[in-house]
Design a protein around this nucleic acid. Structure first.
Length: 105
DNA sequence: ACCCTGACCGCGT
DNA sequence: AACGCGGCCAGGG
């Protein structure tokens, strides 16, 4: 991997089931502390072609950012099936489920 | 080849 | 607490 995009894609593909990462976290690890938006772009375009676990990416608040109800449900159900628990507010407990590549679990 | 867009984040009003 | 804005990047029309 060399480019920001390639790094980001590699990181996303490296997220284990039952864990989540935030946009900002991914962009930072990929070399751009402020490039969270690029991760959004990558999820949109790359997830179609490549098979990325886009449902394991959430915003820094631990919530699903999608506005589309159907896709929102798909993501939430996918995560719950992997063992990720949500608060009634719809947020994820990042202190328990956020994944840090550095620790390599 | 240019321009718009996008599921964000953090900081300053 | 809410809102606005700038930063970062590249795919697709």
């Amino acid at each position: 991997m060399e480019t920001f995009t390639e790094k980001a894609v590699a990181i996303i593909k490296n997220i284990p089931a039952g864990r989540v990462m935030t946009y900002g976290q991914i962009s930072k690890l990929a070399g751009s502390p402020r490039g969270a938006r690029q991760v959004v772009r990558i999820l949109h375009s790359m997830s179609k072609k490549h098979q990325l676990p886009w449902h394991r990416v959430v915003n820094i608040k631990g919530e699903i950012g999608l506005k589309d109800d159907e896709h929102f449900s798909i993501q939430k159900l996918s995560l719950e099936r992997e063992g990720v628990e949500f608060f009634s507010s719809g947020r994820i407990d990042l202190s328990r489920f956020q994944f840090f590549p550095e620790q390599e679990e």
